[in-house]
Design a protein around this nucleic acid. Structure first.
Length: 481
RNA sequence: GGUCUCAUCGUCUAAUGGUUAGGACACCAGGUUUUCAUCCUGGCAAUCCGGGUUCAAUUCCCGGUGAGAUCACCA
């Protein structure tokens, strides 16, 4: 807790067991924000000590996810730093050294029992309605640890009170402390042991982790004492819950890969904003925070203690807000992978112009094809759209035809800029004596055959004279059938 | 079962020993010469329950209830 004067160093230390979901990313984000805010260092360490759970390609996936969000590490995997290596499987000698120290100080011993014997102890405890504690079965004269048996921590059960930077005052009784395994028989350390060693050696000042670790914290406190090391600031983050479930968001419960959101056209700014404000706020009524504002304003003290549901509707709204904040050039640069094939045959200027019309209508970048298709592809006329339209469904066919013809004539001589076209359309309203709700609806459908589109004058201007003329002619022909 | 944590609108949250308990998302209704979106206006909607302390409790205390976590040679 006396880490205030030290340079702030935080870490994110995931296991390579698959993709990253929003819960994990939020933990990384908060740790990163603390480091950024304090001009500290954010470290990426990989905890690959369970070979059976390892998933091929996970590390690359984790790196890609963090990079997409803009969470950059300046020390760690693939970068190096003063405490290399940052892959735990390459640090086995280090853990062995520290384990040996515990053996020598009498705080670790070889576990003589088989799995079956352990199982028996456990079952007996359950049968007697007692909590199972390994330390009730400590061997009297443990043999020398040669690596063929698990190495266990010889705990010193006691009550603890400690302060968590998020949760506040926490306490437990001695029952929470047991002799846990430090080194497994495969030679790898357990998380419980190696993260303590690494955090110490890597000079980590703030340890942020998710709520499931709160009940193992007393074990860590006990080990810190046994190893005589000053513990870092501990911060426990509440869970991110699935929106419909009551369980923490996890891969089994349908949590999505963060990169799926990228593929669906969410902006990293929106995702970061959303995750940061899921369980944190700055005390004002501000909802939208740019990354730089988050860095400036974030604090662990204002992190919520209770779990939060992951509300994708709020994320969607936020994404729309962030899309609208982008300059057209920036938006265009980010839209590269989202255009339809037909759109991609058009030039940059054409696409950019269309994009400017739909920017306010986008919730995600993947809405682009749906909102812009008729600018690049000839739409298929669906007369039912006129028959089902509540403004148009009572109008006789011949009147529809004559309106379309009048529009075609008026527009054939128009100047194709938005202002002139609005003039033309207004004049057309007068000459036909129609209400805008009728005439504009009809023309809009005839040139787009889309359920929605930008303002009519802008749509026409963007389509251009030739497309407008030919599409109106198609509509006229159908109206006469 | 043991241990531990949490509890304000449907959701994310603000606030305070005295407020009409505020904002945002979602939803509903109206407005902006068509539609959809944006934008604007309005509406709906919350302090888990019971005791105590107090002139006053959503806020402090205790007890319930509910929810969650953990009890691995996983992290």
């Amino acid at each position: 807790m006396n880490s205030d004067q030290l340079p702030i160093r935080t870490r994110f230390a995931p296991s390579p067991t698959g993709f990253m979901h929003v819960g994990g990313v939020r933990t990384a984000l908060f740790a990163w924000l603390i480091a950024q805010k304090n001009n500290g260092t954010f470290i990426l360490r990989i905890e690959d000590t369970d070979k059976s759970r390892e998933v091929e390609g996970s590390i690359a996936q984790i790196e890609k996810s963090l990079k997409w969000l803009g969470i950059n590490w300046t020390e760690g995997i693939n970068i190096g730093g003063p405490y290399t290596p940052y892959l735990q499987s390459e640090r086995l000698d280090i853990y062995k050294t520290w384990a040996q120290k515990l053996v020598e100080s009498g705080r670790a011993y070889a576990d003589p029992y088989t799995q079956a014997e352990l199982e028996q102890f456990r079952n007996d405890a359950i049968a007697n309605k007692k909590a199972f504690l390994y330390r009730d079965h400590r061997p009297e004269n443990p043999s020398v640890w040669d690596g063929t048996m698990p190495l266990r921590f010889k705990s010193d059960p006691k009550s603890y009170k400690w302060t968590d930077a998020v949760m506040g005052e926490l306490s437990t009784g001695p029952e929470a402390i047991d002799d846990f395994v430090l080194i497994k028989t495969d030679g790898y350390p357990t998380y419980n042991f190696c993260h303590i060693v690494d955090d110490m050696l890597m000079q980590i000042t703030h340890v942020l982790r998710s709520q499931e670790f709160i009940s193992s914290t007393p074990k860590f406190l006990n080990l810190y004492e046994a190893m005589d090391i000053q513990r870092p600031v501990l911060a426990t983050l509440p869970f991110v819950m699935a929106i419909d479930g009551k369980k923490k968001l996890g891969k089994r419960d349908g949590a999505k890969d963060i990169l799926e959101y990228a593929a669906e056209g969410y902006l990293p700014e929106a995702m970061m904003n959303f995750l940061a404000t899921l369980g944190w706020n700055d005390g004002t009524e501000q909802e939208l925070f740019a990354p730089s504002e988050l860095i400036e304003k974030f604090s662990l003290e204002r992190v919520q203690k209770s779990p939060a549901r992951f509300d994708e509707k709020r994320l969607l709204w936020m994404n729309g807000q962030w899309i609208r904040k982008l300059s057209l050039d920036d938006l265009y640069a980010r839209s590269t992978n989202f255009w339809s094939d037909a759109a991609n045959t058009a030039g940059d200027d054409a696409k950019k112009l269309v994009l400017s019309l739909v920017q306010d209508r986008l919730k995600t970048l993947s809405d682009i094809p749906l909102l812009t298709s008729y600018f690049f592809d000839e739409p298929t006329a669906e007369w039912s759209m006129i028959e089902d339209n509540k403004q148009l469904n009572n109008i006789p066919r011949d009147e529809i035809t004559s309106m379309l013809e009048a529009a075609k004539t008026a527009l054939s001589n128009a100047n194709y800029d938005a202002d002139s076209l609005q003039q033309t359309l207004n004049t057309l309203l007068e000459t036909t004596g129609q209400k805008p709700g009728i005439l504009f609806s009809l023309v809009r459908l005839a040139v787009s055959w889309a359920p929605f589109s930008p303002a009519l004058n802008e749509t026409l201007a963007t389509l251009g004279h030739d497309k407008v003329q030919s599409r109106l002619q198609v509509a006229i022909n159908i109206s006469k059938e």
